[in-house]
């Protein structure tokens, strides 16, 4: 399965949405093409590897040597390296390392959560600051159990955090919804993620008929700000953009039944005739 591309083509938020909605399992490799890719909170490394299980992020590493979580445990001083070595000799390798350490009462839940925070929750949102990057998803890559805490994070939540942190939106400007587009909700229930105050106000104005420009006017905030919030909601899979026709006379979306009036049904003899005619072309 070939799933690869550049962030300038398919942004990281869109990649995350794809992997979460497709409930993918495998390894997402990310390589910065950005000269200034050294960012605070992000380990300096040529490549980052994110591991997905049924669409959820279960681990993040910068190498494929299965040593990342062990190093974090050592860095945090949870275990002496020699003790950890002895523990690892008993690790059967058939379950996430974090689950094993917890089951042996070597680490507690809070320590595991802090490890996951340091491994995934804190650094990954900073990947959204990359101006350009190459991604490749390998669905055949086995999950590295020795890198896994047993916890998982929703890409949706990481995306929201990453896009909130983002200061330079230049690489995403061509991906934002248009100012005169209507935003339509794709979910029936209120968002399960915690929205900020302005995000929530924008969300409340999304009714399938109000344009981004109108929302900005009503909330008295910049159109670009609403575009950014709507983009966040779009890549989280909560809403979709419906572009309006740019002619002034038809700027209001006409109901479907009105628009269908110019069209009449086709007879079965017509349909049979055209299919037979085309079938002859497929063999001819």
């Amino acid at each position: 399965m070939k799933i690869s591309g550049y962030f300038s083509e398919f942004s990281l938020g869109e990649v995350f949405r794809f992997l979460e909605q497709g409930q993918k399992t495998g390894c997402l490799s990310l390589k910065s093409m950005d000269e200034s890719h050294a960012l605070p909170f992000l380990p300096a490394a040529p490549e980052h590897y994110l591991f997905f299980r049924y669409g959820q992020i279960v681990a993040a590493t910068t190498t494929l040597n299965h040593q990342g979580l062990r190093q974090l445990i050592e860095q945090r001083g949870y275990l002496h390296p020699l003790t950890l070595q002895r523990v690892m000799n008993r690790y059967p390798g058939n379950m996430p390392l974090g689950v094993f350490l917890k089951s042996q009462a070597i680490l507690d839940s809070q320590q595991i959560q802090l490890l996951f925070k340091q491994q995934v929750l804190t650094p990954i949102p900073h990947l959204f600051a990359w101006k350009e990057g190459y991604f490749h998803f390998d669905a055949q890559h086995p999950l590295p159990l020795a890198e896994m805490t047993g916890l998982s994070a929703s890409p949706q939540v990481i995306t929201l955090a990453g896009l909130r942190l983002l200061r330079d939106w230049t690489p995403l400007m061509d991906k934002l919804p248009l100012a005169d587009s209507t935003i339509v909700s794709l979910v029936n229930e209120p968002p399960s993620v915690q929205l900020g105050k302005i995000e929530w106000q924008v969300w409340e104005h999304i009714d399938g008929t109000t344009t981004i420009q109108q929302i900005a006017q009503r909330l008295n905030i910049a159109v670009l700000e609403v575009q950014k919030i709507c983009f966040r909601l779009m890549v989280m899979g909560m809403v979709e953009e419906v572009v309006n026709i740019s002619s002034p006379s038809t700027s209001e979306p006409a109901p479907v039944n009105e628009m269908d009036t110019d069209r009449t049904g086709l007879s079965s003899s017509f349909l049979n005739g055209i299919v037979a005619f085309l079938k002859a072309k497929t063999s001819g």
Binding site: V243, N244, I245, S247, S249, M259, D260
Partner: peptide, 12 residues
């Protein structure tokens, strides 16, 4: 660009 031409096409 979603202009009037799209509207005509969709109607028909």
């Amino acid at each position: 660009r979603f202009d009037f031409m799209w509207d005509i096409l969709i109607r028909k």
